[in-house]
Design a protein around this nucleic acid. Sequence first.
RNA 1: GCCCCCAUCGUCUAGAGGACCAGGACACAGGCCUUUCAAGCCUGCGACAGGGGUUCGAAUCCCCUUGGGGGCACCA
Length: 500
Amino acid sequence: MTDTVRVRMAPSPTGYLHVGGARTALFNWLFARRHGGKFILRIEDTDRTRYVPDALDDILAGLRWLGLDWDEGPEVGGDYGPYFQSQRLEMYRHYARQLVDEGHAYPCYCSPQRLARLRQEQRQGGESDIGYDRHCRHLSARERAAYEAQGIVPVVRLKVPLEGEVCFHDIVYGDICKDNASIRDPVLLKSDGWPTYHLANVIDDHHMAITHIMRGDEWLSSVPIHVHLYAAFGWEPPVYAHLPIILDPTGKGKMSKRKKMAGGVEYPVFVREFRAAGYLPEAMFNFLAGIGWSYDPEVEIFTRQQAISRFALEDLNSSPAAFPFDKLEWMNGVYIRELPEEELYERLLPFVAADLGLSEGELRSRPELRLFIPLIRERIKLLSEATPFIDFAFTDQVHVKPELLVGKNMTAAESLAALRAARAALAEMPTFDAEALEKRLRLLATELGLKTGQLFGILRLATTGKEVAPPLFGTLAILGRERVLARCQAAERLLETLTT
RNA sequence: GCCCCCAUCGUCUAGAGGACCAGGACACAGGCCUUUCAAGCCUGCGACAGGGGUUCGAAUCCCCUUGGGGGCACCA
């Protein structure tokens, strides 16, 4: 490849950044970085009716979160701007006019109502081909003038050949041909003077010197239109590589439409939702790269540098893939475990603070979270799972059902005696660190003739209020002697209610 | 309905005519470890959708069937 690689991500600010869109961006980014090219971000904001005000910010934030930096586009500029289609209207109108003047396109005065009626009739009539009937394609100058006189503002439609076929090559899908007759003259310029996707996309890709187009395969069927447009303009089309879409976890239907999981739980589809759920951006990156592409048949975990070094369009898969949530969760756990403690602490902070109702500053001023990190890191798969493991350390007292304090195969009285003995032993310990605690409590279990699990289970419930908690000795050390003794005493009172 | 695309373990994938009685990973099951839960380690389960061809030889090429997906807007 002699030309500089220039690829683009062209989102429409009609909704938040979707995982599918993120994956498309990711592959474009990988390709650009692999070849030392440019990754361009272009905002296709030509649909004024579906515009969502905060969508743009969300898209930019989502891409940044994933580490997909763009070389040209919003907030970074570039030599091929503007990068918002809403600021390029004049150019689209110019080319639309040119197409009409040169006989490649024509004005169409059909009302939306007529088109809707037409479609309905075609459907009901069982017609094989649905679409515009080219009513205005052969209007005489006089007829056109008559419409104009009525004040009807026309749209501009592309004059697609009536016979023959268009063919193009796609790196992922190979050679694809389509009969021209099946392509209905598409609208290029809407009656409000704004371009449709087809027009704006082709003009911009050409003027921004885009060399490769990687996008979701829902676009595959519109390539023939674009090929005709490039031909009409006398431009060279870029290289196409359509990406197989991501299906929802059940494999039925695409991921984009929000659906329910088997358990009735909604699963995330927007990048912001994955972020809020506690997924790590580096895990998302790794995971997304593994759908439709494979870094190495034997290697699942790889860095972005490694991905860049091996990425090739020829290796892209052509079959659609169901979104494997299980694998994502596992991978996120892997990345959480690989994070340095201090880094994990920083990432956990906002999640835990919010859950606990504390400010980050307040949480930071307390020692517990930091101390718990090594104890919980291999127990969580999501950042949002940390709080339930440690919240007991942030409450004045724990609430536990008395019955739970009774040890396995023990009576309430025996449990109470064990707890009292433990409290006495703990009160007398010269130091209160995990190592010393383990040594002393193991000895105590032996002295009491109890299995370790029996004694430790009672203590776990008494001090944390939970049946599942971080490792006991470390937990006791973090709570500190004072709190541990107080909680034991409180638990003893509860057990007493069972023995009297 | 019409057009296009896709088809390997439940899922993500490796495989580009012989190296495949099909490899890896997740999930699942069992075991080890163990104070709970995890993590870790070991083992197991498990697929070339079906049918025709082509070929000495097919998961790999062709055709048909079936299944799935996408598209058919003055949306992108």
